[in-house]
Design a protein around this nucleic acid. Structure first.
Length: 553
RNA sequence: GCGCCAGUAGCUCAGUUGGAUAGAGCAACGGACUUCUAAUCCGUAGGCCGAGGGUUCGAAUCCUUCCUGGCGCGCCA
């Protein structure tokens, strides 16, 4: 709808240049069209005349006059007005709007999808928690946001891959191995002293017990081999936990990428050599450095330490270089906000390799403050006194949990109140939206009982939808596709949540004020058609975010 | 000290990427179930958009200087 109008305006503008009524020849890249806050200002509004004021060297309202004259008689528009400092306000013909209902009916679960991103390959890498323990609640937010960003991008036509990067190399893995080994020795009757830097949590003992029953006792191997063996076992085991917890949360990855495999395939050295050849790295004090300061970082960063071992940054660099080798046009990383200091060095690395900085987008996920009844729920890291994702999802439910994580922009901190999320009452916005869907389904059941079928396109007399509330609902439905596009282009899935709440509110209000199934069959059919379009869009938006659309509640 | 994020109604947050009179949900108060599900609706009240300065036709939004809160600033991961 918006695009059609935009096209009409562009045509009119060109026509004005052709017949000389406007002279600058300026063609803006995009005609800005917005939906005015005040409905008296029409369905759409453009500031085009104001932006042309400078190049045309005329008063905005004069330019608007010319444009409006050129647009006169356009079948899309019911009324065109010039207002304020030079806005052009459009009121579209009601008949245009009702076509949206036919579109929704025809497209069904595809309504809202578009092809804006067609031909662009994007990878979204998210969660990527160390496989040294179960996912906790903090990982949950990144998981849902990453998943939803990937989903809206897909809906906008981008080719998307979801990837989990497994940090299965480095110190934290040997710590895991050592911790399991010590618990194992304990099980074998030895008295051990558990180091403070070991993993204390209870699941380590679980892993040790499982190791013992599956692999038997450890004997006749060196300490290093024993740690290695325990580490491998632990990583594999923990990864199955993580994968299962994520699946229960509705999240599946296309690809699990092992850090260790980078080393096994000598990819790290290979990619570091490329950097060396390009003169981006240098050796100093026995270490290999990446010259990130040339591209905006505060200081240069070490890739290979003076003892010959690699930094975490080295494998990260290799990993990201390899992502682009795999043919992705754009790469999105979802990180915890505490890692924000890494952005400049990663972008610097890409800049050094000739990538524009926008090719890597890092979404920072701010902290989750877990509350219970309004009081902070403190979690200790080392002590193992943390709430796992699995526990939270089990307690509050998958839909409520996902909804809460998506309710806010990801770069603002989130208060997550367990009691609030669990409540099945009016305080809980997820049920508010789902209830709207269930209500339409309920109407359908009543209609079926009365022998009224849900109408198809062509069986409707649109003149029966004459209420302002009905036209407003249709307009809201028409906004869904552009909402998805804007959520995708800005990587902000919360926009879809707000859209859902708005649509549900409009529907509930309409439902309370008017009956859908009335005595007059033509009116019943028309209204049934309308509310089922609402149902389709509610379901599409809910499913897009990985939420269920229940038929009864 | 430097950097990143945030600061909007009593609370939690939106704000269409610079547009017209700044919005919603909770909480408060007053109403609506003989009628398709009251997990709902209708109404009232609530504001120096952290503060100052700047940019322009126009600023919650962009620039700048402060203030407050959170998080970072390793040859750790």
């Amino acid at each position: 709808m918006k695009d059609q109008l935009r096209l009409a305006i562009q045509t009119a503008l060109k026509q004005c240049y052709a017949d000389g009524s406007l002279t600058s020849g300026e063609l803006p890249d995009e005609v800005q069209l917005e939906i005015p806050k005040n409905p008296e200002h029409g369905d759409f509004s453009t500031n085009l005349a104001m932006t042309l004021a400078k190049p045309e060297r005329k008063a905005p309202r004069k330019i608007a006059d010319v444009l409006v004259a050129a647009l006169q008689g356009n079948p899309l528009c019911d009324k065109i007005e010039i207002a304020g400092p030079g806005f052009i306000n459009f009121r579209l013909a009601a008949s245009c709007w009702y076509g949206v209902l036919d579109q929704i009916t025809a497209q069904g679960s595809n309504y809202g999808r578009s092809q804006i991103g067609a031909g662009t390959k994007i990878q979204v890498e998210f969660v990527s928690a160390n496989p040294t323990g179960p996912l906790h609640i903090g990982h949950g937010r990144g998981a849902v946001v990453g998943d939803a960003v990937a989903a809206v991008l897909q809906a906008a036509g981008f080719e998307v891959q979801r990837e989990y990067y497994i940090n299965d190399a480095g110190n934290q893995i040997s710590t895991l191995g050592r911790s399991i080994l010590l618990r194992l020795r304990e099980l074998q009757g030895e008295t051990i002293e558990f180091p403070v830097d070991g993993y204390q949590a209870g699941y380590i003992a679980e892993l040790a017990a499982k190791y013992r029953s599956e692999q038997g006792e450890l004997s006749g191997v060196s300490e290093a081999e024993a740690i290695e063996s325990c580490a491998r076992f632990g990583v594999a085991e923990v990864l199955t936990w993580i994968e299962a917890d994520l699946r229960d949360f509705g999240i599946e990855f296309d690809h699990w990428y092992s850090e260790k495999s980078l080393y096994d395939r000598a990819m790290v050295d290979q990619e570091l050599n490329k950097l060396k050849e390009k003169g981006l790295s240098f050796t100093e004090e026995g270490a290999l450095w990446l010259r990130t300061t040339e591209f905006g970082d505060d200081k240069d960063r070490v890739l290979v330490k003076s003892d010959g071992s690699y930094t975490y940054f080295a494998s990260d660099v290799a990993y990201h270089m390899e992502k682009f080798d795999r043919g992705f046009d754009r790469v999105i990383d979802v990180w915890g906000a505490d890692h924000h200091g890494y952005i400049p060095r990663m972008k610097a690395m890409l800049a050094g390799l000739g990538h524009p900085p926008e090719d890597l987008e890092v979404l920072l996920i701010q902290m989750v403050n877990l509350l219970r009844d309004g009081k902070p729920y403190i979690m200790g890291k080392r002590s193992g006194n943390f709430i796992t994702l699995k526990e939270v999802v089990g307690e509050v439910g998958r839909d409520a949990c996902r909804f809460f994580f998506l309710m806010r922009r990801c770069d603002s901190q989130l208060d997550f109140d367990l009691e609030l999320a669990k409540q099945q009452g009016s305080d809980n916005p997820v049920y508010y939206v789902q209830y709207a869907h269930a209500r339409v389904c309920s109407i359908n059941r009543n209609a079926a009982e009365a022998g009224v079928k849900i109408p198809q396109s062509g069986e409707i007399d649109y003149s029966r939808l004459e209420l302002t509330e009905e036209l407003a609902l249709v307009k809201q439905l028409a906004r869904f596709p552009e909402t998805v596009v804007s959520a995708a282009l800005s990587y902000e899935p919360h926009r879809v949540i707000f859209y859902l709440q708005d649509l549900a509110a409009q529907f509930h209000s309409y439902y309370n004020r008017y009956r859908v199934l009335v005595d007059d069959p033509a009116s019943s059919r028309a209204r049934l058609y309308l509310v089922n379009s609402v149902r389709t869009v509610l379901a599409n938006a809910l499913h897009l975010l990985g939420l269920s659309a229940p038929e009864r509640m």
